[in-house]
Design a protein around this nucleic acid. Structure first.
Length: 439
RNA sequence: GCGGUUGUGGUGAAGUGGUUAACACAGCUGGUUGUGGUCCAGUCAUGCGUGGGUUCGAGUCCCAUCAGUCGCCCCA
């Protein structure tokens, strides 16, 4: 038996972790600037939190990891975060807080039983925000701006913001009816999926890829023609806000999100990098009006988005953005004889206590092999302790950058390291390769 | 859930059914027993995703299965 990660899951290995940390750093930096607070909800919830009666999405109906213990509760590994956050918002009566809206963000794993593909895994990670308790077009704008700022700050530039509105319930109901009426005569000729969509969620007819060129599809009525005055005005404000911030976007009247709770603004930010494959959406979201009420809270609106971190990494790597900070080491301590090993342990401990990151050899490898490790680890200095040094109570410190070498007593190792390292820093700060400053 | 395609050491890969599974990189050891990055030599897959089958003989053919990947569906 070969043990391996279950299908559609993967280990995030130490060598890749710096990318994740970098992304999480930028996320925390920007959510701080925008005054969002982190929320952590359970990895699993009562199934009813996700599976709400009227939902037609595949995610909720076919892709959930649902289980029960002792035949009692039906629990589900979260496939998304919005429902859990809305549930939490109501459970903890955040609707009564003095300062609304409540602005939250989250980062964590999500679980969907899907056929894996590039950019689509069964366990994947999302960063997302949920702003609940105020219905203001400027919040829609702020939400999009936050996501946009984060991916931009990370260096993503090949992207497109797609925007649409689904209007309020009244507008959407009228539109759905109009769509059904429009496609009624052509229904027989549409693809199988479209026939299903016609019944389940006529809005989704619009993003069919098979029938997109059909006459009836091209002639399909547009959402914008069915917006009532309020919905239309709201959407205009969102557009004006994005214009005001200089965020480029395209209105895509065929953009329909899959989850049933969306109302008004919906948006999707896709990577246009050609290495993305068919899963190119990096983050997407929209406004939802009925969710808080579903969880027995007051009638409050919310808006949010979710960003796929694995997809973000794919997009950034596709664009050639370098996310890995170079891992470096202040010193590599070489011990060249067994008898010196206790001394080397004391030295490395003293250096670490003074804040220098240090590593050493544990395999009694050759001098040459240890020096190769120094290169691979990009250590700034090497501390060398050998048999002879025990007699003289000295060791050698070598600075790799310029090969400068000093011999000092065991007791002075920290002081000497300080000196070498600060000179080194000086070099980095004040000058490049053609340094004339004399250091 | 549907269809296509791929699967050989740590990595990239050669390998028309026939003895010991090329080559390159990385690793390790030595030349240089306290000064690395170059060079040279040596070493490194009892095994070809897994399990069956065909055959005198299978990495090569067949079946099943697992996984990756691409598209559909769906979605972040």
């Amino acid at each position: 038996m070969n043990y391996q990660t279950p299908r559609g899951t993967n280990d995030i290995l130490p060598k890749d972790m710096s990318k994740w940390h970098r992304i999480e750093d930028v996320i925390r930096q920007f959510t701080y600037l925008y005054d969002y607070k982190e929320i952590r909800t359970p990895i699993f919830e009562d199934t009813a939190v996700f599976k709400r009666g009227n939902d037609s999405s595949d995610m909720v109906n076919k892709e959930m990891y649902t289980f029960s213990i002792n035949g009692k509760d039906s629990l589900t590994l979260r496939p998304e975060m919005t429902a859990g956050v809305a549930r939490s918002f109501v459970q903890h009566k955040m609707f009564a807080e003095a300062d609304l809206p409540v602005k939250t963000y989250y980062v964590g794993p999500q679980f969907r039983y899907e056929r894996p593909q590039k950019g689509r895994q069964r366990i994947f990670h999302q960063f997302g925000v949920e702003v609940i308790g105020a219905k203001n077009a400027l919040l829609d704008v702020e939400t999009i701006a936050l996501g946009y700022s984060i991916v931009s700050a990370l260096g993503m530039s090949q992207l497109k913001v797609l925007l649409n509105t689904l209007g309020d319930d009244e507008s959407r109901a009228n539109y759905k009816q109009a769509l059904k009426k429009h496609f009624e005569s052509d229904l027989e000729n549409l693809c199988g999926d479209c026939k299903r969509r016609y019944e389940q969620n006529p809005l989704r007819l619009l993003d069919c890829k098979v029938d997109s060129k059909r006459e009836s599809m091209l002639q399909a009525p547009k959402m914008s023609e069915y917006l009532n005055e309020e919905s239309s005005a709201y959407f205009t404000q969102v557009c004006e806000g994005l214009d005001g911030l200089g965020i480029p976007y395209e209105i895509d009247d065929r953009l329909v999100r899959g989850l049933d709770y969306y109302t008004h603004t919906v948006f999707e930010v896709i990577s246009t990098n050609d290495q993305m494959g068919s899963q190119s959406t990096v983050f997407a979201g929209g406004r939802y009006d009925g969710l808080v009420e579903y969880f027995n809270g007051p009638s409050m609106s919310g808006i949010g988005f979710a960003m796929g971190i694995e997809r973000l990494i794919l997009a950034l790597e596709g664009e050639g953005v370098d996310l890995g900070e170079e891992s470096t080491l202040d010193a590599y301590v070489m011990c060249l004889s067994q008898t010196a090993s206790l001394k080397s342990l004391q030295i490395i401990t003293a250096l670490r206590a003074s804040g220098f990151s240090c590593e050493r050899d544990y395999l009694q490898r050759s001098f040459k092999a240890q020096f190769k490790t120094v290169d691979r680890k990009k250590a700034k200095c090497v501390v060398i302790i050998g048999e002879k040094d025990l007699e003289t109570n000295t060791l050698t410190i070598k600075r790799i950058a310029d090969q400068k070498q000093v011999v000092c007593s065991f007791d002075d190792v920290v002081i000497e390291m300080d000196t070498l390292m600060s000179e080194d820093d000086h070099q980095h700060e004040c000058c490049g390769e053609d340094c004339t400053c004399g250091k």
